[in-house]
Amino acid sequence: MTTLRADRRFSWLRSVIAVYAKDWHSELRTRYAISALLMFVVTTIAIIMFSLGSEDAPPEVLSGMLWVVVFFGAMSGLARTFVMEEERGTSMTLQLLTGPSAVYFGKLLFNLVLVFGLNSVTVVLYLLLINGFVVKTVSIFLVTLILGSIGFAAAATIIAAIIARASTKGTLYPVLSFPILLPLLLTVINATRMAGEGAAFSEAYGEFQLLISYIVVVIAASTVVFDYVWKD
């Protein structure tokens, strides 16, 4: 009995990994999401550099702008994983092959890796290219980046699942995501500013608590309601 239950749990985990691996397979075939994200980040940072010229913007503004790049970058590519299923007509097959929670967590994992990649590239480029953006407390910055990425992926995944079923997918995605992501955005912008000002690590505990509870709440709510979005 217990081995059966353990077996079932492993099979769930295997399905999650399988969905994730399948998404990477088809992503690497076209590189649609990766190139969209990369080009978006490069373009936006270039625009910021042009508009700043040789001026030095205050660090608070720059730390806010970093997350503007991340937000719209994420909006350009993260819906792909669900939209693709609808466009190719493969969502029905996936529904037959595995349960909704395996699909959700597989896609979440896929988006998580994408967001981590996106954020790493963005931050490296940003630090290299934008004068005046300094990080004094690296620990706060790193934790903010990691928690912020998870939160982004969590909210972006369930919204992507919703808009994949709607008719105007592209424009609807940022519209639906923004109010959901705003608590996260305000918190990470605040934490990034603290990192730039050189605050002690313990000062940012409140921000981290908020980020962690946001992640937990969004993922928990998503697992509950995902069924209704996914099934026809």
């Binding site: 109010p179 608590p183 509870s213 946001y214 969004v218 309601v225 979005v229």
Partner: peptide, 21 residues
């Protein structure tokens, strides 16, 4: 109907964060 309801749920669970933020 079901997409709108799901969106309302997701928005409903993230709204309270503003009280703290």
């Amino acid at each position: 109907a079901s997409l709108a309801a799901v969106y309302a749920v997701i928005a409903g669970v993230t709204m309270p964060f503003f009280v703290f933020i």
